[in-house]
Design a protein around this nucleic acid. Structure first.
Length: 421
RNA sequence: GUGGGUGUAGCUCAAAUGGUCAGAGUGCCGGGUUGUGGCCCCGGAGGUUGAGGGUUCAAGUCCCUUCACUCACCCCA
């Protein structure tokens, strides 16, 4: 019989790794709630149209990376490739905007994109996603970025850099778009295949194309910053000066465009040099049109997503072991001792003690070996001899001492000893 | 979707130019020693060398196909 393996790009998170996950999740929950964000849990499956409308039909994600299928032959469903669209969907579906004018939400969970797996990129991956809805104030941008950076440093990341750009709004971006389209006209031949295609759908993407020929062509192109409207300019200025005030280092990257259509104004990315070519740890931006695009009231928003696996990959070295170290190991030899150990262990567990035993009734030596490997604080030795003498030997592994306990009220005396430790 | 790399015991890896090459370490199991455990010593189980085909007297080693993993492009978190 052949063993069935996991689907390509879908990873198991093994017990030895879950400690890191808990560590990161705990810090996220604590910090985000301190900034007023509440957790929301969302389904992983959504109607395909949500992402087509939300992310944009012309994006790579929607064009070729989604897990989409026909459900019972009547509706197209998609495993969510990102969280923002789902958050907005829930926000609208439950009219959360009516409860309060500003809504701060975060969610943690798996996302799905059918890409070729590589270092730092999987088909199922996890994001920590934060969304702040109902504020167009630049302080909201600054606050969200501040929180992100604070979170990252608290978790223990130091060698990351923050890049910023303003993508303009519905007033100034279209102007810039026509400027770029005109600029690129007559230069199509030099562009890579992807950019030729992008020319019609999303010419701004040529900016962050990595091919050399495209970069040479676009190098002389005007920057979006020159075409920002007054509102966008002052907004971006307020964001950057707030970050400076908080002493958060950043770099303005005028070529950063981002691959999701919904971003407006502030866009940002946190990168590192230690992840191979998948250098983005977190990314986000403002999306003042998205809520309306999804059929809701005109509501501004800003948010970001952190790549959980990528973040964890940067945490190498530290000890986040989730392996519990038991209080007590009960080594037992013989049927009577096995039975007694079984009852004792489970009795102690129900009283709050982490007790372990070995069902296999192997040699005492191997049981002791196991107790040692598990790093148990105490070991209780129960053998035929001990039962006959109505006594058991308890060793304090750390202190190197041992004592004899009566079998009467054994669990009580052990409980007392461990609690007193 | 396009390239490159790799596939030998549970894990980490050895096996010059094809010819005792199917091994070591570690882990696991058992035994010895020990203050019934940690160190040390002895023994044991475990691999159709990813799969299929081909060349050859002979293939883990060469060729083809396929699969898996991996890195990079692309894109993104």
């Amino acid at each position: 019989m052949e063993v069935i393996t996991a689907v390509k790009g879908f990873k198991d998170i093994l017990p030895e790794e879950t400690g890191r996950w808990h560590y990161v999740e705990n810090i996220a929950r604590e910090i985000f709630s301190r900034f007023g964000f509440k957790e929301i849990r969302l389904p992983v499956l959504e109607k395909t149209d949500l992402f087509k409308r939300g992310i944009g039909e012309a994006t790579d994600i929607v064009e070729k990376e989604m897990y989409t299928f026909l459900d019972r032959g009547d509706e197209y469903l998609t495993l969510r490739p990102e969280a923002t669209a789902s958050v907005i969907r829930a926000y609208l579906e439950h009219s959360l905007y009516n409860a309060e004018s500003v809504t701060r939400l975060f969610t943690i969970g798996p996302m799905f994109r059918r890409e070729r797996p590589q270092k730092g990129r999987f088909r199922q991956f996890h994001q920590i996603d934060v969304e702040l809805l109902g504020l167009d104030d630049p302080r909201a941008d600054a606050e969200v970025i501040l929180m992100l950076m604070h979170f990252l440093t608290t978790v223990g990341l130091s060698k990351v850099s923050l890049e910023l750009n303003s993508l303009g709004c519905s007033a100034c971006r279209p102007t810039f778009r026509t400027v770029i389209t005109e600029f690129l006209q007559g230069k199509e031949e030099g562009l890579c295949e992807d950019c030729k295609r992008r020319l019609g759908s999303n010419p701004l993407r040529v900016f962050d194309c990595k091919s050399r020929e495209c970069q040479e062509i676009i190098a002389d192109a005007p920057h979006l910053s020159e075409f920002l409207c007054g509102d966008c300019q002052s907004h971006f200025g307020d964001v950057t000066s707030a970050l400076t005030e908080f002493e958060i280092p950043y770099q303005i990257n005028p070529r950063m465009v981002r691959g999701l259509d919904y971003y407006t104004k502030t866009a940002f990315e946190v990168t590192t040099e230690h992840l191979g070519s998948q250098n983005a740890v977190a990314g986000g931006g403002r999306y003042d049109r998205l809520v309306q695009e999804l059929g809701g009231p005109d509501t501004p928003g800003i948010g970001f997503a952190i790549g959980f696996e990528r973040l964890i990959a940067l945490l190498e070295g530290a000890d986040f072991s989730a392996t519990p170290t038991p209080d007590l190991f009960v080594a037992s030899l013989g049927d009577a001792a096995q039975k007694m150990a079984f009852v004792l262990c489970n009795s102690l567990r129900r009283k709050g003690i982490h007790a372990e035993q070995d069902f296999s009734a192997k040699s005492l030596k191997s049981q002791m070996k196991k107790a040692n490997r598990l790093n148990c604080a105490y070991t209780l030795i129960l053998g035929d001899r001990e039962i006959e003498e109505k006594k058991a030997e308890l060793r304090d592994m750390k202190a190197g001492t041992q004592q004899t306990l009566s079998l009467d009220n054994l669990d009580q005396s052990i409980l007392k000893l461990i609690k007193e430790r």
